[in-house]
Design a protein around this nucleic acid. Sequence first.
DNA 1: ATGGCGCGTCAAACGCGA
Length: 261
Amino acid sequence: MKITTWNINGVKARLETALAYLKEASPDVICFQEIKSVDEGFPREAFADLGYNVETFGQKGFNGVAILSKWPFDEVKRGLPGDDSDEQSRYIEAIVSLPALAVRVGCLYLPNGNPLGSEKFPYKLAWMDRLEAHGRTMLNDEILFVLAGDYNIIPERIDAKRPDAWTGDALFQPESRAAYRRLVALGLTDAIRACHPDPGVYTFWDYQAGAFQKDDGIRIDHLLLSPEAADRMVAAGIDRFPRGWEKPSDHVPVWVEIAGN
DNA sequence: ATGGCGCGTCAAACGCGA
């Protein structure tokens, strides 16, 4: 089964683009971030027409996540555990049930954290603590899982075309990177890095300054696999081609193929 | 050199993102 994550930067602005991509790539599951829509405004019919079940956790104006699957959903949970006062829609999780395999898929939009010195940076770090705790909880369950999404983390220097340009940014702060390392150190596998050890592997290019044309990118969208999911990994990749389409998102789809069905 | 974008909200700029 193929699981894809994609920050689409507005589901209504990106509807035709998203539908065209799904027709071409046809993933079993796709996780969207930054839908920038309330649940009632999500164009679910258009996706249902392509055969997808749709679950959303929206918010007015910004943030918002959604998970779509060609297979049935079992449990659907909205919101990352650990802080009932958190009002931002950044996490949705579901069990996807195939005939011979069940996978828990977490779709996350990790806080950006900029600017440093504002309350946004500690919010990011606290959110990452909650994600790590949730990862521990999921590891205690027998069902394999994939944590997919826009992590807003540049893990290593190799993950940026110009790493020195990001040293003052929340995406590349030592505290941010350490929190990400702690998450991975639970025993998870970074699917893209495991399959593509070389430089030049990016998932985001800024709209400004011809960043895509210059390949001035960063890798911030990740798929972290539980040990049993990693055992079943057959391939992972980044689909750059929608970044060259009209009205693109600034992120591109990132996918992993898991054996079994 | 160092500015360059885009979306949503809401009706003119502004918050937000990375």
